[in-house]
Design a protein around this nucleic acid. Structure first.
Lengths: 143, 143
DNA sequence: GGTTAATTGTTTCCTGGTTGACAATTCACT
DNA sequence: AGTGAATTGTCAACCAGGAAACAATTAACC
């Protein structure tokens, strides 16, 4: 079988590890949220709304989570059906402002402990100092 | 709008950054390979075969790239159509060994430079030492 | 040796996501 | 004011990947 000699490239290897780690985390996260009939991205929307503290447009949500308009529509569709979220009319009639509902806030509150514990558990192989180091490196990478 | 008070949790924030970074890299990578009508994972298969140095089974490929049997079948289908890869019969008639073809090896060779440059470019915000640090932290995380 | 369990690859169906077209609306510019 | 460009949300069509069912084969074990 032919074989190409590949020079050792530390950048490529680091990148592959990063992609692999990210992939694992997404899968674990999606599996976790499956218990509530959501995906990680649905939860992301809720947290973005909660963080914003005020209703924001769908396109703004998409911008903050790096997702397409079309996908935000579908995410909101489900969250609205679950009453976690409401679509509000707005001065600009192209725009629908998305508001976190009381039910949605209760969902965040009720699941928060478990979510944070899972996060800490995922990072358990690293010491607190290492976690901080990782965080800073990623900040630089995401500039 | 209701708002849940979220305690600052560095582990969760680090995790989110990791997922976001991974996501960005997957997208960039898939976009890059799109120019050859492949996904990142198709290329992964080729590199795995090249790294193995000998034909390996589909399930082994799936194991190494954390992908399902069903998906490996589809990845190989395309790679075979492009003549980058051949399915070989084998003593165990359940198994098909996948062999990198001469054409496949030439593809790897012809694109390698560009791939490695892209990898280095992605990690450019970090110094060499920082890249090494990142790599080590990820090793620990992936245990 | 014969029966039961496990393995491998494929197929079918489903899901989450993107792209591109579309309608409604607003902006920009004269 | 009025026309052409941009923006927002939605819908249809498509794509990559996963889960489960299936057929073919092999392993395990009495």
């Amino acid at each position: 079988m032919p074989k190409v000699k590949i020079p050792n490239n530390s950048a490529e290897q680091a990148l592959l590890k990063l992609m692999r780690a990210g992939d694992r985390l997404w899968r674990a996260s999606d599996e976790r949220f499956g218990q509530w009939g959501l995906t990680d991205n649905h939860y992301n929307v809720l947290r973005i709304l909660n963080g914003a503290g005020e209703p924001i447009s769908q396109i703004e949500i998409g911008r903050r989570m790096l997702s397409s308009r079309a996908n935000v529509t579908k995410l909101i569709d489900l969250l609205e059906k679950k009453k976690y979220v409401k679509r509000l009319a707005c001065g600009d009639r192209r725009v629908k402002l998305i508001e976190l509902s009381e039910t949605g806030a209760q969902f965040i509150e009720g699941t928060l402990k478990q979510i944070l514990e899972a996060a800490e558990n995922s990072l358990k192989p690293l010491t607190k100092a290492e976690q901080k180091g990782l965080s800073e490196l990623l900040d630089k990478l995401l500039h």
